[in-house]
Write a protein that binds this DNA or RNA. Sequence first.
DNA 1: TTGACATATGTTTGCGCAAACATATATTTT
DNA 2: AAAATATATGTTTGCGCAAACATATGTCAA
Lengths: 338, 338
Amino acid sequence: MSDKDKKNQYSNPPTMHDVAHVAGVSQMTVSRVMRGTGYISKDVLKRVQDAAISIGYVHNRLAGGMSKYDNPLIGVVVPSLQNRVFTEVLSGISDTLNNNNLQPVFGVTEYSLEREEEIVFDLLSWRPRGLILAGLEHTDGLRRIIEQTGVKTAEIMDVDGSAIAASFGISQKAAGEQMAKYLLNKGYKNFAYIAWLDERAKKRFDAFKAYIENHGGIISQTRISPKMLSMKEGRELTADILSGSDKPEVIYYANDDLAAGGLMHCITENIKVPEDVALAGFNGLNFLEALPVQITTTKTPRYEIGVEAANWISDKNSKQEERRVHEFDIELIKGDTT
Amino acid sequence: MSDKDKKNQYSNPPTMHDVAHVAGVSQMTVSRVMRGTGYISKDVLKRVQDAAISIGYVHNRLAGGMSKYDNPLIGVVVPSLQNRVFTEVLSGISDTLNNNNLQPVFGVTEYSLEREEEIVFDLLSWRPRGLILAGLEHTDGLRRIIEQTGVKTAEIMDVDGSAIAASFGISQKAAGEQMAKYLLNKGYKNFAYIAWLDERAKKRFDAFKAYIENHGGIISQTRISPKMLSMKEGRELTADILSGSDKPEVIYYANDDLAAGGLMHCITENIKVPEDVALAGFNGLNFLEALPVQITTTKTPRYEIGVEAANWISDKNSKQEERRVHEFDIELIKGDTT
DNA sequence: TTGACATATGTTTGCGCAAACATATATTTT
DNA sequence: AAAATATATGTTTGCGCAAACATATGTCAA
C-alpha cells in the first residue's frame, strides 16, 4: 500500500484519532505524546511519533486551546519595525519566548495609540496567555479591555508613569537629567535639540530641558518633527541649525541615528567636534562603535529589557497584581563628541 | 445593578451566548456581527455591539477557526531581526497583512535551517492560512511537511533556485554579475571581498567571482566569516586588508553595513576613496544617503518584496500550484566610491 | 397578485482536542 | 504479604464557535 493510499484512509487533515489508530493507542495517549506531558513508555512514544510522521499529522492547537485562555501565545505590540530599538527588544523577546515554548504574535502600531487598541483587541481574539506592549501610554479603551479580560500584561521601554501591571524599562526622565547634568558640567550653556518625538523622547526632553533651564543653560534652538526621522534628516537638520547665526555649543539628539547624521555633516563640512559644536545622542546602538569618532550617548539595555519582560510573562508564578516596576540601569557613554 | 453584578451572571470569560442573551438575539447573529458577514439590521448591529462592550466580550477565534484550516493567521519566518533587510521586508509584510485582515505569527531562525523546520512545524499547529519563508534553501523535512499539509507557501528574497510554490525576490546571481561587470568596466582588476555568508550572499559572490575571473580580474583577498558581521567588523576587516602589502583596487562587501564600516576606516585614516581603494556594497539601505560620500551599491526593493509576497498569500485566487516566480528589479547605484 | 429575489434572523450540528477522572500494572516500602 | 506509591494508559465529556440549512418578512417587477 502506497503512502498516499494509507493517508486516504484517514481524515484530511489527519487527526489525533488517526494517529492513535495507526499507533494502536488511544487519542489521549497521542495527545500526551504531542505535548510531552504525563507518563509515556518508550515503546509507545516511538510508535506514536512514527505514526504521526507516517500519516503527516500536525498538532492542532486551536482545538485543545479552545476556551482555556492559557495557550502558548503571547501578543507583542510595538510601534515600528524600522526603529532598531524595537527590533532589538523584539529579538530579546523572541529568543526568550522560544526558550519557554511560547509563540509571539506581532502587531505594529506605527506609533498610533488608536491602532494599538485595535491591534490588541484583535490579538486577544487568539486568547494569548500574555501581552507585551510598548510604553505606558494607552487609550482608555485599551486599559479597560485589559482589565476586563485580565490578560497578563507587561509594558516595556519606559517606567516613568503608571503601569497597568508590570513595567520593564529605563527612566527616560533620569536619562534626560543625567545627560543635561553631564553637559552642563562640561561647561556648555547654549543647547540645541533635534528630535522626532515619540512618547519616550518627549519625557526625556522635558526632563533635560527642565534641568538645563534650572541650572543656567538655555535651549536656544529646537528642530522637532512629528514624523519619524532618520540619519539623513539628522544630517540635514544639523546643517540647518549650524547655518544660522546663533550657533549652539551642543546639539542633543533624540537618538543615535540623528546624532550620527549630525556627525556626518560635521565630517563632510570639516566642522570640528567638539570644538565647534558638541554632539550627544541616545541609545548606544552598536553601529556607533564603527564611526570615526565615538559619539557621547546614553546606553540602554534594549535586548535585556525584552528578555526580562518575556521571562516575566512566561513565569507562571508572576502575578499581574504585583505591579512590579523593573527599572534598568543606563550608562552615560562619554565619547569624543563632547 | 452594577456592571460587575451584570457580568457575573454570565460565563467567565463571556461567550457569544452571553452577548446574544443581553442583546436579545441568537448566538449566530452575534457571530455574524463579530465577523461582519451576512445580513444584519442597523438596530441589531448596535444592540449586539453594545451588549458585547457591556459584558466585556472578546471574540474567540480559536473556537470557530477549529478544524477549518482557513483562519486569518500567516506564519512568517525570517533568519534574524537584527538585520535591517529582514525588518524592512517584515514591515512590508506586516502592513500588507493588516490591510487584508490577516495576522502574522513570527519566528526567527538565527540562520539555521534545522531551527526553521522546527519553527514551521510549530507554527503549523496554529493552522495558518499561509506561510512566508526566507530563501529557497530548506530541509527535506520542511519541504515534506509543506507538501503534506498543503499550506500555501511564499518564499522571499531570492529567486535563483527551485521554489516550493511562489517566490518573490531578486536574482542574487544577476546582482553579483552586474556589479562585477560594472567594476571591471571601470578598469579595476584586483578585488577583495568581505562578507559574512548567508545563502543569498553566497550566490551573489559565486556569480561575482565567476564573472570577474572569466574576464581577466582576480580576487586577491577574501575575509569571509561564518557569523554575522556588522559595520564595526566591516571597518576592522577593511583595516586588515589594507594593512597588507598586496592592496586591492576595490573591496566588494556583502552588504552596506560592512561597506559603510570600510568607508569609516578610510575616513579615519585619510585613505582616498576611490583613488586609493574603491568600495562597493549591497542593498541600498537608506542610511547610505546620510554618509559623507555615496557608496556604490545595488539597491533592492525590500519593502516591496514583503508587500507582494503578503498580497499573494492574502489573495484567495492565487494558487500554490502555479509556482510563479516574481523577480524584482535591482538598480546599481553608481556612487562616489568607485 | 403572484412570484422572484433581497434582506434578516434562527436551529442544529460537529469541529479536535485536553481536563478530569478511572483503571491497571509495576515497583518500592513497611 | 500487604500497603503505598510510581508509572502507564483509557473513557467520557464539553469547550465556543461557524457552516449548513431553515425560516421568516420585505420589496420589486411583471
